[in-house]
Design a protein around this nucleic acid. Structure first.
Length: 583
RNA sequence: CGGAGCGUGGCGCAGUUGGUUUAGCGCGCAUGGUUUGGGACCAUGAGGUCGUGGGUUCAAGUCCCACCGCUCCGACCA
């Protein structure tokens, strides 16, 4: 492609809207433009990268037996009612009506559609397994689109769905997809890590996310260098600590006056007590029903774990009125014990120790707190020497904690390391969640009706493009990994008016093309500085500079984008030597 | 949805105590010329419903009201 005939609107200045590196560089390099919040146009140069990534993904899907299809974007409500997701998916689902007021959604994912197709067309175990995949635009009305195409409302994705006759086969195939995803990340030149993840709105029994490692990533992950355990922090389990409270001497419960002291920190300073003596009592509304959750003062609740345990759709911290209503005290004084003690006295005057109107859940971390401190459910009072079993009793004691630096690996007890990543792929083992809801069955070898066992597997193709930039750039611009570079080579004419320079460059350009390379020819009537700056900005892996000076020796200059040194190569051997620069 | 901010040629911005009545600057763009190894220079020029609607006023980019859009922080979310 000759740049003089191309459309590459590069920008010298960064548009004010951009915050992340990839977004800035995609705008500056003329890859995309924004049409609305979270909605982008892909320009020729950007689309070329997108298509490169798409092709890598397609090849790897085809290798593992995937069958490419193309499913509609406009999805009728009825299908989504079958699985209940019309109601459950929430505001993220873009909804619209047709002229007859029929309701539709713009597809955010296609489990319903593909399951409908398969239940209508696949009857026998003999036809299984089958894996269908597609590339297409997905719509999700993100609450806050950001980071350019990384969290957009409309984005380009590969989604795949597999159907199996048995659990074993589904798991066997899950591993195959997992390996294919790793291969895709390898080919895209990523430093990445697959991690255990939560299944979220898609559902299913287990899942993995493929994280491209980047400081700027949205996701936080933990990993264990010793045994290889890796998980999204949302998911990461906590190793249960040893019980130490046996034989501990229980001091009498005391009520103490703590005027206007609400937080663990304030009360801790006041009482000169360490934070790990505190039982933090949080009141949540789970689908509008209040629940109290206990955790040690220096830890935080992992709301994903809590939500999963409660099996609720919506989980929010309760508002102050609710807190006052259920605890009997303003915010800051709630606690798990509804036993009564009077100030200065040593014994509870009255049990019961639980309040049955308010279910109480506790994290493992409170189990070992002996003679702890909590709110007294009374304005300006806290309780000292509160003890599990004697003064309060949660319904269950489970893992509700968010991992924290210094925590140990749940598998091998070594210290966990924290890092950040960009989620470019997600694999789910779905089981029969969708096939049961949609009555999708086949006949097994015994002639018996069975539900399909399913898996689903997504890759954010547009997100991969941004992730690649996020992971590989410098102050001058993008540095494309060779496999997804829109062009591998650029030939620059130092002075495009020099007849000899022009002739030789055109010749080199066409020879390189004939040799199978994707080449840009910068034949614009611009000064060399402009061309060098643009070449660096758009990140072409190797540049060939043709100048009058070097032509005198019959040579051209070849330089890799990520190196500062160039090499002079005789024109005659350029085509044969160029491959050494592309590794 | 809560908090904050912004909206002025393609991009980045100034102008906002109302009043040089033709709204500026830099970049980019067009034409001509000089240049040609890291974002050149000179000259000439094109390009603006000052986000939208309403109001106040002799007079509104500037003040008031409403709305829309965009961005950031948070909550939330594959």
């Amino acid at each position: 492609m000759k740049l003089s005939e191309y459309f590459l609107p590069t920008l010298r200045e960064t548009p004010a809207e951009a915050d992340t590196i990839s977004q800035k560089l995609m705008l500056r390099a003329g890859m995309m433009r924004k049409l609305a919040s979270g909605v982008y146009e892909w320009l020729p140069f950007g689309l070329r990268v997108l298509k490169k990534v798409e092709q890598i993904v397609r090849e790897e899907m085809d290798k593992i037996g995937g069958l490419e299809v193309s499913l509609p974007l406009l999805l009728p409500r009825e299908l989504w009612d079958e699985t209940g997701r019309w109601a459950l998916y929430g505001k993220e689902l873009m909804r619209l009506q047709d002229r007859k007021e029929g309701e539709f959604a713009l597809g955010p994912t296609h489990e319903e559609v593909i399951t409908d197709l398969v239940r209508n067309e696949v009857r026998s175990y003999r036809e299984l397994p089958k894996m269908f995949y597609q590339f297409g635009t997905k719509f999700r009305d993100e609450i806050r689109p950001r980071f350019g195409v990384m969290r957009a409302r409309e984005f380009y994705m590969k989604d795949a769905y597999s159907f199996h006759a048995t659990e074993e086969d589904a798991e066997r195939y899950y591993k195959i997809v997992f390996n294919a995803y790793a291969k895709i990340c390898d080919r895209c030149g990523f430093k990445y890590r697959p991690v255990e993840a939560e299944t979220g709105a898609i559902g299913g029994s287990f899942s993995h996310e493929f994280m491209v490692l980047a400081e700027t990533g949205e996701e936080e992950i933990v990993s264990c260098a010793s045994c290889g355990y890796a998980a999204n922090v949302e998911r990461a389990e906590i190793a249960k600590s040893q019980k130490v409270r046996e034989n501990a001497k229980l001091e009498p419960l005391k009520e103490i006056y703590t005027p206007n002291l609400r937080t663990v920190e304030e009360v801790g300073n006041f009482l000169k007590a360490p934070v790990d003596k505190f039982i933090k009592s949080l009141i949540y509304l789970a689908d509008n029903k209040p629940v109290m959750v206990l955790i040690r003062g220096d830890y935080e609740i992992n709301e994903t774990k809590l939500k999963k345990y409660l099996n609720c759709n919506e989980l929010v911290l309760a508002d102050s009125q609710t807190i006052e209503k259920v605890s009997g005290a303003p915010v800051g004084f709630a606690g798990p014990s509804f036993a009564k003690a009077t100030e200065g006295t040593s014994l509870p005057t009255q049990l019961p120790i639980t309040n049955y109107q308010l279910p109480i859940l506790a994290d493992y971390s409170v189990e070992n707190i002996v003679n702890g401190i909590s709110g007294a459910n009374k304005k300006d009072y806290h309780l000292m020497n509160i003890n599990l079993g004697r003064d309060y009793q949660p319904e269950s004691i489970i893992d509700l904690r968010k991992v924290k630096s210094g925590d140990f690996c749940p598998k091998c007890s070594k210290v966990l390391a924290f890092s950040r990543g960009i989620e470019v792929g997600h694999t789910f083992k779905l089981g029969t969640k969708y096939s049961q809801a949609m009555k999708a069955t086949f006949l097994d070898a015994q002639g018996k009706e069975q539900y399909f066992i399913m898996g689903c597997y997504g890759i954010g193709v547009s997100r991969i493009v941004a992730a690649a930039i996020e992971q590989s750039n410098d102050e001058n611009g993008i540095i494309w990994p060779v496999n997804i570079a829109p062009y591998q080579l650029v030939v620059i004419l130092v002075n495009s008016k020099e007849e000899k320079v022009r002739q030789i460059s055109e010749k080199i350009y066409s020879e390189l093309q004939k040799a199978g390379y994707e080449v840009l020819l910068d034949d614009r009537d611009e000064r060399p500085g402009v061309k060098f700056k643009d070449t660096d900005l758009i990140g072409i892996p190797v540049r060939v500079v043709v100048s009058e000076k070097n032509l005198l020796q019959g040579k051209v200059e070849v330089k890799k984008r990520n190196e500062s040194e160039f090499t002079l190569i005789p024109i005659d051997s350029l085509v044969s030597e160029i491959k050494n620069f592309l590794t």
